[in-house]
Simulated assay, not measured.
Amino acid sequence: MSLSINLNKIALIRNSRDGNYPDIEAFAKMAIDAGVQGLTVHPRPDQRHIRPGDVDLLSALASPLSSVEFNVEGNPFAQAQGSYPGFMDIVIQNQPDQCTLVPDSNQQKTSDHGFNLHQDFARLQPIVEKLKSHGIRVSLFMDPDPEQITLVHKLGADRIELYTGPFAQAYQEDKALAEDIFAEHCLAANTALDLGLGINAGHDLNLDNMQLYKTLPGLQEVSIGHALTVDALLIGFDTAVKEYLRVCH
């Protein structure tokens, strides 16, 4: 299982002041030196954390490295706004290894649900085709719904990223409920495997709940940022990255 470090929170801290401190490229290099297999960013139109220039910078850093994948996630329908050129323009310009499509809006604090492909299938189909024509692996942010995952396969995407927010919250508050939710994720994962889809996961995964979630059938990649940044405040960034790598491996 690969660990992709989400660098959004590093950028969020930087954006609270003028200048480039903390330096997002320096933290990306620290993560790579510690052994991560991927870097993830989520450039939103409001540029609350990752900016288009950050994507350019990190793409240039990761692209020569065969052992590190670059994942750009976001809303494929996000249009140009001010200095934000539009999500698809950012992706096509930078040619990441993977693009994770997420149905978030500008009003959301963070991603909090997967796609409803009954509504978005027709709009997403040309986007998936365009990304794949550029050799970019396409992953869709999804809830653990086998019917919806079947539609991901029909859409032609390569992977799903299971939204783990409800699981993480339940793991903290009600372990029995967390196990029930995890069982739903296992059913969804097995459906994806049967269809030949790859499986990623992310949102509020941490060193504690990963003890269970890492046993998900076929799990190939987890994207972790918020919890790792919080742990880094306590134990240091390099140590936090290595602890998450230890859990993943």
Rank of each mutant, 00 (worst) to 15 (best):
L39Q: 07
L12Y: 11
D231S: 14
N8A: 09
G74N: 01
C186G: 10
Q81C: 04
I149E: 06
N200S: 14
A201L: 11
P76Q: 00
T239I: 12
P96A: 02
T40C: 11
G53L: 07
E179L: 13
Q211S: 07
C248P: 07
D120I: 10
P96W: 01
A31V: 06
I224Q: 05
A232D: 03
L124E: 00
L177K: 14
T150D: 12
S59V: 10
N116S: 12
F77H: 09
F121H: 12
M88W: 02
V36K: 12
H153Q: 13
L151C: 02
P64K: 01
D23V: 03
V152H: 01
P144L: 05
R44I: 11
L233K: 08
V222F: 01
L212N: 05
H113Y: 14
A62D: 04
H153M: 02
S4R: 00
G198M: 09
T229Q: 15
T150M: 07
A60V: 14
A168N: 03
G53A: 13
G86W: 04
I224K: 07
N94H: 07
K130Y: 05
V222T: 08
K214P: 03
Y171R: 14
F70A: 06
F27K: 00
D158V: 05
E221R: 13
D194H: 03
N6K: 06
L245A: 10
D120L: 11
Y244S: 04
T215M: 05
E129D: 13
D46P: 08
I92A: 12
H249Q: 15
I24Q: 01
D104W: 09
A201S: 10
S66A: 11
